[in-house]
Design a protein around this nucleic acid. Structure first.
Lengths: 93, 93
DNA sequence: CAGTATCCATAATGATACTG
DNA sequence: CAGTATCATTATGGATACTG
């Protein structure tokens, strides 16, 4: 359901606050337009986030997490905890 | 650090019990030799599992989780919990 | 048993140009 | 702003044959 590495970052970012497409791009750093749209469409299809369009000029779009998406945070936290505890341990490289 | 979809299954399987290469293959269902070795080497490099060779004839090898690997289970459990709760919700397909 | 080595198909991602 | 469309590149996974 999560699709790719960017999905984690997107979820984390939207957990922090709902935001638009280009805003997300900037906050995510170096994701490409295609990767971002692919990820967003995928997460929307799985109802992890929702997309709302406001008919302003130019049009504005807001992405935000659903309840399902917000609850995914528990997994991210668990991952972070494990990651922080063990990040140092790998063979050389 | 986890590398791919098979890594989850490998960790779960080894959590259940340490085992050899072909034993793992059978228990994992339809993983190919290449995918399994790739995954095992990767997880070993990240010290999530260890590989022990016994000089029998023919040689036997045992894969088992490290402490770091065993603690990864918390993440798997969290994922399962979330998955079970939300598995039904997606748009049609 | 426990792999390695190759080759190949396909999937994932990125770069770039263009649009309402 | 919020994308779509296309092409190129790279990463990943599978099939197959062979080995100590």
């Amino acid at each position: 359901m999560i699709s790719n590495k960017w999905a984690f970052a997107v979820i984390a970012q939207l957990y922090y606050q709902p935001q638009g497409f280009n805003q997300l791009r900037r906050n995510l750093g170096n994701i490409t337009v295609k990767s971002l749209t692919d990820t967003l469409r995928h997460l929307e299809r799985h109802q992890i986030l929702r997309r709302r369009v406001f008919p302003t000029i130019p049009v504005s779009v807001e992405y935000s997490l659903t309840e399902k998406g917000r609850e995914y945070r528990a997994i991210l936290l668990q991952m972070r905890q494990w990651g922080e505890k063990w990040i140092a341990s790998r063979n050389e490289l």
